[in-house]
């Protein structure tokens, strides 16, 4: 059973308790000023955003095949069997390719850290896999719940069926980048509550793989081709040299 999160923005009342408990978990300060910041950052791993009367949470989407994990040159980001995408600080050299590659603009960086800057992002409470995530546990309205991805999809469909007027008829995260472990429900089209519409439906690491897979081919055929050309050209030269010593100066 791989862990997933369902965030139902229709049920969310914007109490921000998820923010607070999350900050506690990461040992980050949580002040009124920070609560008012409506974006994630290295000191705010999840953020509740206001869109008129509606709210929406931003957190790592924990893609099934994450772009960040595929691009990391040192495998500092990894998708675990259990579901969460985790960050291994000890490997990270700080190239920030994960940040550039993430389609959801999730990973953040501790820019002001001088000696040991690092990437910061939600890890779906991978430190306690037996219990639900802290944000799910504290949520008073069941807007955020933890569970198995398939079960959560079934649950989301149930909610939409029960009150079809309250929901926009789609689940964000089923098809986005080939599927994510965080699923989102909304009353309105997702771009109206801060979720980008331009997210491709395809698996993103595949776009890179389409090019990378040719490498062995290029190495082998390239070496043979160039070795061959070199050999032929040199052979020509040797023959020319053997035929007439006088021509040496020309070539």
């Amino acid at each position: 059973m791989a862990r997933a999160i369902l965030y139902d923005s229709v049920l969310c009342v914007g109490c921000r308790q998820c923010e607070e408990t999350c900050s506690e978990r990461w040992k980050l300060p949580y002040t009124e000023k920070i609560a008012a910041e409506e974006k994630t950052s290295a000191h705010k791993i999840t953020a509740v955003r206001t869109h008129g009367e509606r709210f929406s949470r931003k957190l790592c989407m924990h893609c099934i095949d994450p772009a960040c994990a595929s691009v990391c040159p040192v495998a500092a980001l990894q998708k675990t069997e259990a579901g969460p995408v985790v960050y291994l600080e000890d490997r990270c050299m700080g190239c920030r390719y994960c940040m550039t590659a993430c389609p959801f603009q999730v990973p953040t960086y501790t820019w002001s850290e001088i000696l040991e800057p690092k990437v910061a992002k939600c890890d779906m409470c991978s430190d306690r896999l037996k219990e639900p995530t802290r944000c799910s546990e504290i949520c008073p309205t069941e807007a955020t719940i933890t569970g198995d991805r398939d079960e959560l999809i079934a649950k989301a469909r149930e909610r939409m069926k029960e009150s079809p007027d309250s929901y926009y008829p789609a689940i964000y995260g089923i098809e986005e980048v080939g599927g994510t472990s965080v699923l989102i429900l909304s009353a309105v089209p997702f771009d109206q509550i801060g979720f980008s519409k331009s997210i491709p439906k395809e698996n993103l690491p595949q776009t890179t793989w389409a090019a990378l897979q040719h490498i062995p081919n290029i190495v082998v055929s390239g070496s043979v081709l160039m070795g061959g050309i070199y050999w032929l050209n040199n052979r020509k030269e040797e023959v020319a040299r053997a035929e007439g010593e006088g021509r040496e100066g020309v070539k």
Binding site: P73, V74, A75, R91, C92, M93, C95, T208, L212
Partner: peptide, 25 residues
Amino acid sequence: DLGRPWRIWHPLIMWNPRSVMFEVG
């Protein structure tokens, strides 16, 4: 540019062959 430049050698021992950056490195 690197956040921790003294770890520039990491890709040599910590592999991720799916990464273009790993290959470029």
